[in-house]
């Protein structure tokens, strides 16, 4: 694994009201990767991000960004990081240009109009640069928040629920921007409810719930799990046992012998279904109906969350 740009070690957070938002999270984020954090509301995603970015003080454990402690060496770590918050929080009376330039200044960077122009153009905001934020649609405001986060040329970008309440077109645009950033070497961490999004864009996927990180896995590995498919045959006549001739397929009987289930790998390109069905008719088994079932990230997600509940 390439070197970590963010290391989270035994991180805990208990809020003043006693709510335990994080119960010991360990996470290594590699430079240049896209990590998607999945989890239901209140899972601890935003708390985790907020601690890394400096908005919330950790109760225990520590976070290193670029090798620096986020609490002690906040100047170094915050200069590395750009944050796009979940809520559309904007100064309604400010213009797009001013608010984005302000963000750059806050991060201690000298003004660079050419760079800001490039950021605004990349996000299709250039023609809106003199608009006040209150004149913009929700989707446009979301772009402005991204522009603000990118204004100081961060090496790590946090996107907290970037596509919540965003239409399909903007979502596509946003993933293009994310793709370009990734090519330029920016590490991206995003939280989302949309599992398809994680599947589409992330290199690794983490599942967080109840303040714990339940799983962090390479998307490819996850996709293997995802690749598991089932062919379900509803038999005309119930079977008592699986016939000898079909023993090599690893079949299961379900529903008191009325359904025959065949597990196979959906990503395997070799033709398996054809020979299986031939073997089936050769064995004299007929069926009324057939269906297939695919394991989705959602299934994995639900089963992980379910295990805890």
């Amino acid at each position: 694994m390439p070197k970590s740009i963010i290391s989270v070690e035994r991180l805990t957070k208990t809020y003043a009201n006693g709510f335990e938002a994080l119960k010991g999270v360990d996470l290594e984020i590699a430079e240049g990767e896209i990590l998607a954090l999945l989890g239901p509301n209140g899972a601890g995603k935003t708390t985790l991000i907020s601690i890394i970015c400096g908005i919330v003080t950790p109760s225990g454990g520590r976070v290193l960004a670029g090798g620096h402690d986020v609490v002690r060496d906040f100047r170094e770590t915050r200069a590395l990081i750009g944050l796009v918050p979940q809520e559309l929080t904007t100064d309604q009376f400010e213009t797009v240009w001013n608010t984005v330039s302000f963000s750059r200044g806050l991060h201690g960077k000298k003004p660079n109009p050419a760079y800001i122009e490039q950021v605004l153009r990349d996000l299709s905001l250039w023609d809106k640069k003199d608009f006040m934020l209150r004149q913009l649609s929700g989707g446009m405001k979301r772009r402005v928040l991204i522009a603000k986060a990118l204004s100081h040329e961060p090496r790590v970008l946090f996107l907290d629920e970037p596509t919540a309440g965003v239409d399909v077109n903007l979502r596509k645009d946003m993933w293009q921007v994310v793709g370009r950033l990734r090519e330029s070497g920016v590490t991206i961490i995003l939280t989302t409810h949309y599992i398809e999004e994680a599947e589409e864009i992330a290199d690794r996927v983490g599942v967080i719930d109840g303040g714990r990180l339940l799983l962090v896995e390479d998307k490819v590995t996850l996709m293997k799990k995802l690749g598991a498919k089932q062919l379900i045959l509803e038999l005309s006549e119930p079977l008592g046992a699986i016939p000898e001739a079909l023993s090599g397929y690893g079949l299961r009987l379900e529903n008191e012998g009325q359904a025959l289930v065949y597990d196979y790998d959906g990503h395997d390109q070799t033709d398996r279904i054809g020979p299986f069905l031939q073997a089936l008719s050769a064995a004299g088994i007929s069926f009324k109906d057939l269906s297939t079932r695919q394991n989705s990230l959602e299934d994995i997600f639900v089963s992980l969350i379910g295990e805890r509940a």
């Binding site: 970015c53 908005i55 918050p85 929080t89 100064d91 309604q92 806050l106 201690g108």
Partner: peptide, 18 residues
């Protein structure tokens, strides 16, 4: 108070500013 009210305070807190 205004950044607190609108929520833009997140930016001050996540910037390398003491």
């Amino acid at each position: 108070y205004f950044p607190k009210f609108t929520g833009t305070i997140y930016e001050l807190l996540s910037s390398p500013v003491s």
